[in-house]
Amino acid sequence: MNTPKFSQWVKFTHYKELDGLSFPGVYALAHFSSPPEKDSSIHASHTIYIGETTSQKLSNRLYQFGRSAFQKKNGHSGGHTYSRVFLDNKPLNEVPDNLYVAVLPVDKPPKESKAYIKLVERLAIWEFFQKKRDYPSCNTA
Rank of each mutant, 00 (worst) to 15 (best):
M1S: 14
M1F: 14
M1C: 13
N2L: 12
N2F: 15
T3L: 11
T3W: 08
T3Y: 08
P4A: 05
F6P: 13
F6I: 02
F6H: 06
S7L: 07
V10P: 09
K11C: 01
F12S: 00
T13I: 10
Y15P: 13
E17S: 14
D19W: 12
G20W: 06
L21T: 08
S22A: 05
F23D: 11
G25K: 03
Y27M: 09
L29S: 01
L29N: 01
A30P: 13
A30S: 10
H31N: 04
H31A: 01
H31C: 03
F32K: 15
S33F: 11
S34C: 08
P36S: 03
P36H: 01
P36W: 00
P36M: 02
E37N: 11
K38W: 05
K38H: 06
D39W: 14
S40E: 14
S40L: 05
I42K: 09
H46T: 15
I48A: 02
I48K: 03
T54E: 15
T54W: 04
S55L: 10
K57P: 15
L58D: 03
S59V: 11
S59P: 13
N60P: 03
N60H: 12
R61L: 03
R61F: 06
L62Q: 04
Y63L: 11
Q64F: 13
G66C: 06
G66V: 07
R67S: 12
S68W: 11
S68R: 05
A69R: 04
A69Q: 02
K72P: 07
N74H: 05
H76L: 05
H76F: 09
S77L: 13
S77T: 03
G78Q: 06
G78S: 12
G79Q: 05
T81V: 14
T81W: 00
Y82Q: 03
Y82E: 00
Y82V: 00
S83Q: 04
V85P: 09
F86H: 14
L87I: 02
L87M: 12
L87G: 03
N89C: 10
N89D: 05
K90D: 00
K90I: 04
L92G: 04
L92F: 04
N93Q: 13
E94F: 11
E94D: 08
V95G: 01
P96Q: 00
D97P: 11
N98C: 13
N98M: 09
L99P: 01
V101F: 04
A102K: 07
L104H: 06
L104F: 11
L104G: 05
L104N: 04
P105H: 05
V106I: 15
V106K: 13
V106F: 11
P110G: 00
K111V: 09
S113P: 12
A115W: 09
I117E: 15
I117T: 07
K118E: 15
L119T: 08
R122T: 06
L123E: 05
L123Y: 02
E127D: 13
E127C: 09
E127S: 10
F129A: 11
Q130S: 13
Q130C: 10
K131G: 00
K131F: 01
K132S: 13
K132V: 06
K132Y: 14
R133W: 03
Y135N: 06
Y135H: 10
P136S: 03
N139Y: 08
N139K: 01
T140I: 11
T140N: 10
T140E: 08
